[in-house]
Design a protein around this nucleic acid. Structure first.
Length: 1176
RNA sequence: GCGCGCGUAGCUCAGCUGGUUAGAGCGCCACCCUGAUAAGGUGGAGGUCCCUGGUUCGAAUCCAGGCGCGCGCACCA
């Protein structure tokens, strides 16, 4: 292929193939560049580029070229492919593409291994929806084996959409070697991690109150619970607990307890008060004509008033008492399902004496007066704190007499027969009946709605979670809190407040990781238990399992495989097959080891990804060693407690001191600065819909990514993400904003590119012809071309452009190295604006000047300079822009570099080195001074506009007054008189000799300087200077070095050089405009000669318009015939006939009073004119 | 409730180590320019810089207290 292309000579054919190019380039007449269409079809262009990258394996080549470079390690946080990708994923994929691309261009070797998160509740729930089932019983009835098969299929449901998106947005990543969390190799790495934790005593089984998903029959981790909070209105009830007298009979005095979970009242075991808090006993005040109500309420003193208001009743306080005086009193619980008949029976305490084991007032520190009544209903089965009360009470009683946990709720979240009223119904659904019953029995003191956030299952959104006592497996992460915090210190977070804010806070409040899930589709917990003794051991791999003595049950999978040869071998390590594998117990002769039934939290899978993606430590030692830790990761903010945490926690626990001893024999130890798994993390904001609300399918407040790609292209979307706002602000996904970002950058760049190609063709500018060794076509490479002149030899405009170019490159590198692509994009945008609106604009004449640009005998050196400058600028911009907008950059590179130089230059812009900027070409003084010229031009246009002097009308003179003559810019500006005259269409440029005619100078104090010195006198000085003669003060400072200003109300202030700022304002009556650096005045007076010239310019403009309507080529010659009844106009045209002909490429031109047959009838400033443009 | 972030033009956002007339882009209006034109230029309209109080000669910027929005946390019993 390479040889074939070389045989074609200078590689004219473009790598994309000509047919593809024709779609966005008009058919060629050229020898150099493919002509560029003025109106690019970006989506079509991108499709062609994508095809080119794929067929030419550009991504693979970009890796191969950097194989020996330093590593840049990137981790792909695995998405789940069982849902459609949405705009948020486009953002992450854009950011994840930008930095690897950039780093690769910088010479680093950046492998990009894709990954898929495949396990867990989301998948199971999806499958259940599909099967129309919900509960675990239904899954069991359907069969675990077919269910698992469904899960495995479901995981790949939208893979195609994901792959399409990935390629379409230009995210370069290796999908073919993607890691998959359900693969055997991945699972075995996770097993190794769990075995290591188990052997170190960090994985334990605990009896705890967990957040429980009743319908799903499993506990959830803190992370999962956090995802499901929702605001709901729950019943809020105030319930009377009558205190018992010595005989065990209820009295009229009642404790008032408050709860938002009436369904926990049947399980009440204690009432808690705060020992040192004051409580009051309230009695309903007597109302005239009615007997005083007999009942008394005990409630915390500070809450009594609010309580009275709620009940809209007047109470009198009959007694005040401290909380500890209530401790030990028995009361009547709201339900008697667990309570024996008769008075409470005391049970012996460990320390001697006796007390009733339950339904007794206890003291507890967690009681507050923030809300409620200061008396807490304690149901140990359904609250972590409540459970703590029970454990503490149990410790007080003599062995065998402890209070037991009372639990009338089954694991599926329904009441058992122990509570007949709710038997078989979900607990929360019984709140209303329970409340009604309490009311009927006179125990309901008050009822209202309480709006608060309550957790629901993050996947089954209608299922509320409940706190529930359960045996569950935990990882002792809380023991590593300090180490995790220390490791966090070493991570660079963007934005940096994440480190000590969200993420740091989350680590501070770390609790043990509730790891196990009583589910089906997940990494099985690799723990086998002796059926006799209950002793357990963990198994680090399938191979280790097979090596166990007397292993059996492996054949279950083999049989299934025979029945279905398509069955994936990866399922060997999954339920239900793995559950069949048992082996001889080392703990009890003749007994078997059986696996526990649980699978694990899928977040643990993804957190193991740094090593599990290679199957380490069982295999992949070299890869892991080279790819840990990551230099860069990026995900959205919801991953703080997800993937960001799981990676850090696992890494900290596993790779802290002494991990080497836990590696299997022969496994490579990981290198690097352990144990933080990533060095830099960009935390992305959440994307919002068009209306600023959360994106939601049902609200239809965003357009599908595919539609955006089809309408505007991937580069437009990428640019919108990268240049629109810093990545961590919540991004409004706004179609209008995406559309509008095109002209301001992509199209502007394209226009310059198109301009260059058009004129390069006309002038025969052909770099490839004069470059023996083009290299990467950077400054040094171009210097070897024939006819090339160094920057020092070129004009100021060229030097200025090159200076801007190289300075911008340097800043962009500096910004991108700091992961600040937003600022880098801003620089790039400014650069493109500078090329388009100053360099090209000011250089037009040079491109249109006589002579060729081909290095031949007719060559015009200045013209050639302009081409070389623009050529270098465009190529460099293509490379600078490549990580941001990879498609357009590639299109420009293909045409400007590959089309001419063929194999002699890198085949793709993404195979070039990122420009770093050549400091030697940067001339900051020139840039500043060019800024002055641009200011003057801009002010001149403003002055014209203010007087309605249109630019086509030539004026005699422009005068400039510089605000600060000391800079020495005067002479420099005078030297650029031609440029200014050109821009402003004036005949003469002058630095004003008598500025006082046009301007006034006033003197302002430099507050920053004088503030600290004068303090309170400052306002008076400002007032004094406001009315003072500025010129006199300036003169005084100039002559004697200081000026004295008298202050109102006495005293004076002394001013020295540098204490004041001079402001220049234009006097009224002149066509003048003022800016911070200069005042520009244009002469308004018109001589007949100037008027005539103005008319001629109008005529030329009309002819050009006519050429355009006739669709003439830029170089096509014409014949011109004018006719006008206006003598003034005829004279003007006649006087400038040569000029008109030259400007309009007319071979002949004539003007007469007689109207010709053809032609267009128009009016020029009130003068009638007929123009006849004829093709030659 | 606690924590993090945010509140500046119609929209999207800069500015915020205190300093003079608070900026940019887009949108809108007017005019201009147009041999790159889905461009470009100049001007204009549009602001209680969320509120209140404090520190200071001076506050969009610092401090305190509110209010509002987004997100996170969770022993709201």
């Amino acid at each position: 292929m390479r040889a074939a292309r070389a045989a074609l000579g200078r590689g004219r054919e473009v790598a994309l193939g000509f047919a593809a190019w024709q779609r966005f380039h008009v058919p060629s007449w050229s020898e150099m560049f493919q002509p560029v269409r003025g109106k690019p079809d970006f989506p079509a262009l991108e499709a062609d580029i994508t095809a080119f990258w794929r067929s030419a394996s550009i991504y693979e080549k970009s890796l191969a070229a950097r194989r020996d470079g330093p590593r840049f390690v990137f981790y792909e946080g695995p998405p789940t492919a069982n849902g459609m990708p949405h705009p948020g994923h486009c953002l992450t994929r854009t950011i994840k593409d930008l930095y690897p691309r950039y780093r690769t261009m910088r010479g680093e070797y950046c492998e990009r291994k894709a990954g898929w998160d495949t396990h867990g509740l989301p998948v199971e729930v999806e499958v259940c929806k599909e099967l129309g089932i919900h509960s675990k019983a239904e899954i069991e009835a359907y069969g675990v084996e077919p269910f698992i098969h469904k899960c495995q299929e479901s995981v790949w449901r939208y893979t195609k959409e994901w792959e399409t998106l990935t390629e379409r947005i230009g995210f370069w990543i290796d999908l073919s070697t993607a890691y998959v969390t359900y693969h055997k190799s991945f699972v075995e790495s996770v097993w190794w991690a769990l075995t290591t934790l188990f052997d170190r005593g960090l994985l334990y089984k605990g009896h705890k109150i967990v957040w429980w998903w009743g319908q799903g029959g499993t506990a959830l981790s803190a992370g999962e619970v956090g995802q499901g909070y929702r605001e709901v209105a729950d019943p809020s009830v105030f319930v009377a607990f009558p205190l018992l007298d010595e005989a065990g009979e209820p009295t009229a005095r009642c404790l008032v307890a408050w709860t938002t979970t009436p369904w926990t009242l049947p399980s009440n075991q204690f009432a808690a008060v705060k020992a040192d808090l004051e409580y009051v006993v309230l009695r309903e005040a007597a109302v005239e004509g009615e007997p005083a109500a007999g009942r008394e309420y005990v409630i915390a003193g500070p809450l009594a008033a609010a309580f009275g208001e709620k009940l809209k009743m007047a109470f009198e306080v009959v007694e005040r008492l401290r909380g500890d005086s209530l401790v030990g009193r028995s009361y009547l619980p709201p339900f008697d399902i667990f309570r024996p008949e008769g008075p409470p029976q005391p049970a012996p305490l460990a320390a001697g004496g006796a007390e009733p084991a339950a339904w007794r007032v206890v003291a507890a520190d967690f009681v507050t007066t923030d809300s409620g009544t200061g008396i807490v209903h304690v149901a140990p089965a359904f609250g972590e704190v409540d459970y703590g009360v029970l454990v503490a009470e149990q410790a007080r009683f003599a062995s065998g007499n402890e209070p037991t946990l009372l639990n009338p709720v089954a694991p599926d979240g329904t009441f058992t027969d122990a509570f007949p009223m709710g038997s078989g119904r979900f607990v929360k659904d019984c709140d209303r009946d329970i409340t009604r019953d309490l009311k009927a029995r006179g125990l309901l003191v008050h009822q209202e709605q309480y709006v608060h956030d309550y957790p629901f299952c993050w996947r089954a959104e209608k299922d509320p979670l409940i706190q529930y006592p359960r045996e569950s497996w935990f990882i002792r992460t809380s023991r590593f809190r300090e180490q995790m915090l220390a490791n966090n210190e070493q991570i660079d977070w963007l934005p940096d407040h994440i480190k000590h804010g969200r993420f740091g806070n989350f680590l501070e409040t770390n609790v043990d990781w509730a790891l196990s899930r009583e589910r089906y589709w997940g990494t099985p917990l690799p723990i086998w238990v002796c059926e006799e003794t209950g002793q357990a051991e963990a198994v680090p791999s399938y191979e280790a399992l097979l090596a166990k003595p007397g292993v059996g049950g492996v054949e279950v999978f083999d049989q299934a495989k025979r029945a279905d040869p398509d069955l994936s071998d990866d399922l060997r390590v999954h339920k239900p097959y793995i559950d069949a594998v048992t082996y001889d117990s080392p703990f009890a002769p003749g007994k078997r080891m059986r696996r526990v039934s649980e699978v694990i939290d899928c977040w643990f899978d993804s957190g193991c990804m740094p090593f599990a993606q290679w199957g380490w430590p069982h295999r992949g030692g070299d890869e892991f060693a080279a790819q840990f830790p990551a230099d860069f990761i990026s995900e959205a903010i919801d991953q703080t407690r997800g993937w960001f945490y799981s990676q850090l926690a696992i890494s900290t626990l596993l790779f802290g001191a002494g991990y080497e001893g836990d590696l299997p024999p022969g496994a490579a130890a990981p290198p690097g600065e352990y144990p933080h798994p990533f060095k830099t993390c960009i935390v992305l904001g959440h994307m919002l819909g068009e209306d600023g609300q959360k994106m939601s399918k049902s609200r239809r407040n965003y357009r599908e990514p595919a539609e955006i790609f089809d309408a505007y292209g991937a580069d437009a979307l990428r640019w919108f993400f990268l240049a629109g706002q810093p990545p961590w602000t919540g991004i409004r996904y706004n179609e209008r904003a995406i559309r509008e970002s095109i002209p301001e950058f992509l199209l502007r760049l394209w226009n310059v590119y198109s301009f260059f190609v058009i004129y390069a063709e006309i002038d025969g500018f052909d770099p490839a012809a004069v470059l023996a060794a083009p290299g990467q076509l950077d400054h040094a490479d171009l210097a070897r071309a024939r006819g090339w002149r160094s920057a020092a030899e070129r004009g100021e405009l060229d030097r200025w452009m090159l200076s801007e170019l190289h300075a911008t490159a340097a800043v962009m590198v500096e910004r991108l190295d700091a992961y600040d692509h937003f600022a880098a994009a801003g620089e790039l945008s400014r650069l493109v604006d500078a090329v388009s609106n100053w360099f090209v604009r000011s250089s037009r004449d040079r491109f249109w000047a006589a002579g060729r640009a081909d290095g031949g005998p007719e060559a015009n050196p200045d013209k050639l300079d302009a081409y070389w400058t623009l050529y270098e600028t465009l190529l460099t911009i293509a490379r600078l822009a490549a990580p941001f907008v990879p498609f357009v950059s590639e299109a420009i590179w293909q045409n400007l570099a590959v089309a001419g130089a063929g194999d002699a230059v890198p085949e793709s812009v993404h195979l070039t080195d990122y420009p770093e900027g050549d400091e030697a070409l940067v001339d900051r003084d020139l840039v500043r001074r060019m800024g002055v010229v641009r200011d003057v031009a801009s002010l001149g246009r403003a002055a014209r506009a203010a007087e309605r002097l249109k630019v086509r009308q030539p004026l005699s003179k422009v005068e400039v007054i510089l605000t600060d003559p000391a800079t020495g810019d005067e002479a420099w500006l005078a030297a650029h008189a031609e440029l200014v005259c050109d821009e402003l269409n004036v005949k003469q440029f002058e630095i004003c000799r008598e500025p006082d005619r046009y301007i006034e100078r006033s003197v302002l104090p430099d507050l920053k300087k004088l503030g600290p010195r004068l303090g309170k006198d400052l306002p008076r000085l400002r007032k004094a200077l406001g009315t003072a003669d500025g010129a006199a003060i300036l003169a005084a400072i100039h002559d004697s070095g200081q000026a004295t200003v008298p202050l109102d109300g006495g005293g004076e202030a002394m001013l020295e050089e540098g204490d004041v700022i001079v402001r220049t304002t234009a006097k009224p009556g002149w066509a003048a405009a003022e800016g911070p650096r200069a005042v520009v005045v244009v002469a308004k007076d018109l001589t007949p000669e100037l008027v005539a010239e103005g008319l001629v310019r109008e005529v030329v403009h009309s002819v050009q318009t006519r050429r355009k309507t006739l669709d003439l080529e830029f170089t096509e010659r014409i014949e011109l015939v004018f006719a006008s009844t206006s003598g003034e106009l005829r004279e003007a045209i006649e006087a400038h006939l040569d000029y008109v002909a030259a400007e309009t490429l007319a071979t002949t031109a004539s003007v007469s009073a007689d109207e010709p047959a053809g032609g267009e009838r128009i009016e020029i400033d009130g003068h009638p004119l007929v123009i006849d443009v004829r093709r030659t």
